[in-house]
């Protein structure tokens, strides 16, 4: 554990909590992509199966359980409790494609051809692109509520901070997992446009509207 990873994890945690608060307080999941949330739930489920086989630390176990539980809770709120507020007609990204490509890549490029390792690799590839339906939805509607943009900023920052963590671990611990590193770079890269808009607009108190 180093400071980059800790802040990254806290940023990830904050993102999830911000999203739950937004939906719960407004009694609405308007502007949120249910497809991205389904993908994140698949990511956590495939990656954290090792909860039962591999103990790392109390911290690690607690976080995994929280991420799993909160992602299922989010899915429940979007598709059941507040489903009347879900903007289904704006959430039209073909997310099946992301799953198919991630499965194929995980089967081809992995550290070891075993079930758990391929599921882990699949979760890493899928996480890298899981935000695309959400970003697509914002592009389509041309705007996002400020709380939704805070959510996205925290969620995007988390993997960016992990990159710093991987640089640190490479030099200090000699640890390098290039599957995670390359995927993390792709994942953070997808947020670049959004980060720019967030810093130039939302941080100055304006709404996140896309330039025409």
């Amino acid at each position: 554990m180093n400071v980059f990873r800790l802040i990254g994890d806290m940023s990830h945690l904050a993102a999830i909590i911000i999203l739950l608060i937004k939906i719960w307080r407004s009694r609405s999941c308007s502007g949120i992509s249910g497809k991205s949330q389904l993908l994140f739930t698949a990511v956590f489920t495939c990656r954290y199966l090792d909860l039962f086989t591999n103990f790392v630390s109390i911290y690690n176990t607690t976080m995994k359980i929280f991420f799993l539980a909160s992602s299922y809770a989010t899915i429940y709120l979007i598709f059941m409790k507040f489903k009347a507020t879900y903007n289904r007609n704006h959430d039209t990204f073909r997310f099946e494609l992301l799953i198919v490509v991630s499965v194929i890549l995980a089967l081809l490029i992995n550290h070891e051809f075993s079930a758990t390792e391929i599921l882990w690799t699949f979760s890493i590839y899928l996480e890298a692109v899981a935000i695309l339906p959400q970003l697509f939805m914002i592009t389509k509607t041309g705007e996002a509520e400020s709380i939704t943009s805070h959510y996205l900023f925290a969620l995007g920052s988390y993997r960016g901070l992990y990159i710093l963590n991987w640089i640190y671990r490479y030099y200090v611990e000699g640890h390098l997992d290039w599957i995670a590193v390359l995927s993390g770079i792709v994942q953070t890269g997808l947020y670049c446009d959004f980060f720019y808009l967030y810093i130039t607009r939302v941080m100055k108190g304006k709404n996140l509207t896309l330039p025409a």
Binding site: R47, H111, E117, N165, H175, D177, A180
Partner: peptide, 10 residues
């Protein structure tokens, strides 16, 4: 190096 079975990150 790969690090199978030592995925200690979240």
């Amino acid at each position: 190096r790969g690090n199978k079975n030592s995925h200690d990150e979240l």
